[in-house]
Design a protein around this nucleic acid. Sequence first.
DNA 1: CGATTGCTCTAGTGCAAATAGAACAATAGA
DNA 2: TCTATTGTTCTATTTGCACTAGAGCAATCG
Lengths: 116, 116
Amino acid sequence: MLLSVNSASTLPLFEQLVTGVRGQIMSGELVSGERLPAARTLAQSLDVNVHTVLRAYQILRDEGFIDLRRGRGAIVADRAKNYAKVAVLVDTLVVEAKKLELTPNALGALIRAAWE
Amino acid sequence: MLLSVNSASTLPLFEQLVTGVRGQIMSGELVSGERLPAARTLAQSLDVNVHTVLRAYQILRDEGFIDLRRGRGAIVADRAKNYAKVAVLVDTLVVEAKKLELTPNALGALIRAAWE
DNA sequence: CGATTGCTCTAGTGCAAATAGAACAATAGA
DNA sequence: TCTATTGTTCTATTTGCACTAGAGCAATCG
C-alpha cells in the first residue's frame, strides 16, 4: 500500500486519498478482500487528521469500492469489474479533447451534462 | 441568447454561466462573430452581480471560446472546431461508466489522471 | 467628446470545506 | 467475558471561496 498526499496541492487531502486508493483498486494493485490500514494508523503515517482519512474511506464506501465497518476496518470490496474498457475510452477521449483545446474543466462539464 | 441561472443549485453561478455559454457555442447555437450581452446588461437581466458575469466571461476567454475586450464586449471566437466527435466519445464513455457503477466524480478523477 | 464596456481595487458577508479533540459503539480476538 | 481496536458521532474552530457591492480607471466606438 503506497500512498502519499501533497498538502501543497490545490486538491483537497481527502480527495487525493480517494483518488489514490480508487486508482489502485481499479488497476488491480489492491485486490478484493485486502485490508486497508486503520484510519488512525494511516492518518499518523501520512501526517493528516483522522477525519480526513475517514472521510476518504466513507466516500470509497459510498462508491462501492470498500467495505467499511467499525471494529473491522476497511476492506476492499468485491466489485469484480473490468475497468479496462473504460480506461481505453478515457484515454481516447482525452486525446480528442486536447486536439480541440478543451480544458479538463470543460470536459468535466460535458460529462456532467451527458450524465443524465 | 437564452440563459438562466439557478441560485438554489450547488453549482456556483459563474460556473452555470460558463457551462451554458460554452454549451451553446459547442452546439452551434451561438456562432462565430456573434456578440454576447454586455456584462452589466446580462447581470441585470439574470439578477446577479456584474462581477459574477465578468468572471464567467473571463473563464470563457481563457478557454478560447470568446474574445473579450473592454469597449468592445464579448464576441464568440472563431475556433472552427468540430465537437461532434468528442460528443460521441463522451456519450459512450458515460454509458460504460454507468455500467461499472462509477460516480461522475470518480470518472472526473480518471480523466484528470489521464490528462498528463 | 461622450457613451459604452470591460478592468481593477477594496471590502464585507455567508457558507461550506477542512481540521481538530473527545467521547461513544460495534467488532474481533485473547 | 474482558480488552484493545476501529469506525462513528458530536461539537467547535479555522480557513477559503462564492457572491455581492461600490467606486473609479481605461480602452473602444460612433
